[in-house]
Computed example of a mutant assay.
Amino acid sequence: MEFDAVVVAGGGSTRLGGVDKALVVLDGVTFLDRVLRAVGHATHTVVVGPVRETYREVQWTQEDPPGSGPVAGLAAGLASGSAPNVVVLSCDLPWVTAQDITRLVDSIDTHDGSGLRDSDGRDQWLAAAYKRSSLAKAFTKLGDPHNKSVRRLVADLDLVWSDPSRSGDDVDTWADLDG
C-alpha cells in the first residue's frame, strides 16, 4: 500500500541533556537513519527539523516557529507528499523496522490509523500510520497546531494498536537505551 513518511526530528532533547536525539548512535547507526531505513519504501519522505546528514536524500522542512511542538511539526510535514496514507514517526524510535511499518500501513483498513504500542503498552501516536484524509480532518478540528498535544490531535480518530513491543519504545532518557 502506498504511503508517505513524516519524521518528526525537531525536539530539544532536554531529558538527554540537550544531545540531539536524531544523531545518537546505536549499533553504528544514528537514530534518524534507523527510522529512515524503516520508512525506506515510502513514496515521499519529509523530515521535520534542522537539516542533518543522513544516509539517503529526504525533503526537509521545519515548523514555524521552530520549537512549537510535534503537532506543528506534523502539520508542516503533511504539506508535502500526496499518498493516501502517512506514516508518522518520531526520530527517537531506534527499534522500529520496515516490517513494523508494513504491518501498520496494512492494518489501517477501515480505521483512521494504526499505531505501535511500546513495551509498557502505551499508545505511541508518533509511531503510527494514518489515513491522510483523517489527519486533515483532525487538523481542521484542532485549529492552530502550535504547542498542542498529539493526543489532542488524534483524540477522535478510530485507531487500532499493535501488541506491546520494543519497536514502539522511544528514547527519552539514556536509561531508555538499556531497555
Rank of each mutant, 00 (worst) to 15 (best):
A79C: 05
L23N: 10
G81F: 02
L104D: 00
V96L: 06
G81D: 04
R117P: 04
T45R: 01
G40S: 14
I101L: 06
S114F: 14
D120W: 13
V39L: 02
V35H: 01
D118A: 10
L104S: 05
A42S: 09
E63Q: 08
S162V: 04
T54E: 05
S119D: 07
L126G: 02
D163G: 06
W161Q: 03
L32R: 01
A175Q: 14
E57F: 07
A22K: 10
D92A: 04
H146F: 04
H44N: 14
A9G: 13
L36Q: 03
S13M: 08
S68A: 14
T110S: 15
V105K: 10
A9W: 02
W60C: 05
W95P: 12
D106F: 06
D169P: 02
T173S: 13
D109N: 11
T30E: 03
P145S: 06
G113Y: 03
K131W: 05
D27P: 00
R151K: 04
V86W: 06
A155S: 10
D176C: 07
V71Y: 00
L177Q: 05
T43Q: 13
L104M: 06
P65L: 08
G168T: 03
V71S: 01
D112I: 14
G67P: 10
V96P: 00
L74I: 11
L36P: 05
V24M: 11
V24P: 04
D144G: 04
I108P: 01
G18D: 07
Q59P: 07
I101E: 03
A5C: 09
V29S: 01
D172L: 12
Y55V: 12
A155R: 13
S119C: 14
L16I: 11
S149R: 12
A136I: 09
D163F: 08
G28A: 07
R122Q: 15
D100T: 07
Q62R: 11
G69H: 07
I108V: 15
G77H: 05
D178I: 13
G121N: 12
S119V: 07
L126M: 08
L116V: 06
K148L: 00
H146D: 13
N147G: 02
G17N: 07
A136D: 13
D172F: 12
V105D: 01
P65R: 08
L36I: 09
Q62Y: 09
D20L: 11
G81H: 05
D20H: 08
A136V: 05
L74S: 03
